[in-house]
Amino acid sequence: MKIATTIFILFLTINFLSCKGNAREWETTEKKIEISKTTKGTLPESIGIINDYGIVFTEPQRAELSKILYDYDIETTRQIVVVTIDSIKPYDNIHRYATDLGQNWGVGTAEKNNGLTIVLCKPCRQIGIATGYGTELVLTDEICKNVIEEKIIPEFKNDEFYLGIKKGVLALIEKWK
Rank of each mutant, 00 (worst) to 15 (best):
T42A: 15
T6F: 11
N93H: 00
A23P: 04
A63C: 06
A130M: 14
Q61R: 04
I9A: 10
R62L: 09
T29S: 15
T77F: 07
K112S: 13
F156Y: 06
E111D: 15
Q126T: 12
I165C: 04
V169A: 12
T76Y: 03
Q79S: 09
A98C: 07
E75F: 08
I47R: 06
W26N: 10
G54V: 10
E64C: 04
A130D: 10
G128C: 11
D141Q: 14
E27D: 11
E142Y: 11
L139Y: 00
A98G: 07
I49P: 10
W176G: 03
C19K: 14
T135L: 04
D52Q: 04
K37W: 13
G132E: 11
K67H: 12
I49L: 05
V119I: 06
T58W: 05
T117Q: 15
I80M: 02
W176R: 03
I143Q: 03
Y133R: 15
S36W: 15
V138G: 04
I153S: 02
E160I: 07
T84F: 05
N158L: 12
I33G: 05
N93F: 00
L69N: 12
L10D: 09
I143C: 08
K166S: 07
P123C: 14
D141G: 14
T76S: 06
R24W: 01
K89S: 12
K157A: 07
D100I: 01
K31P: 00
T117S: 13
L101F: 03
G128H: 09
F11C: 07
G168L: 08
N93G: 03
K31I: 06
A63G: 00
D52K: 04
D73P: 02
E160R: 12
L120T: 09
F161M: 00
I3F: 13
A130I: 15
S18F: 10
R78Y: 00
E64F: 08
T39I: 04
C144E: 05
D100L: 03
P44Q: 07
S46N: 14
I85F: 03
Q103A: 06
A4Y: 08
A4S: 13
I153H: 00
G48R: 03
T140S: 15
T140W: 10
I173H: 01
W26F: 13
T135W: 01
G168C: 06
Y133Q: 15
D86M: 03
I129W: 00
N22I: 12
L172H: 00
E142W: 07
E27M: 08
T5S: 08
G54Y: 12
E111F: 08
T5W: 05
N51Y: 09
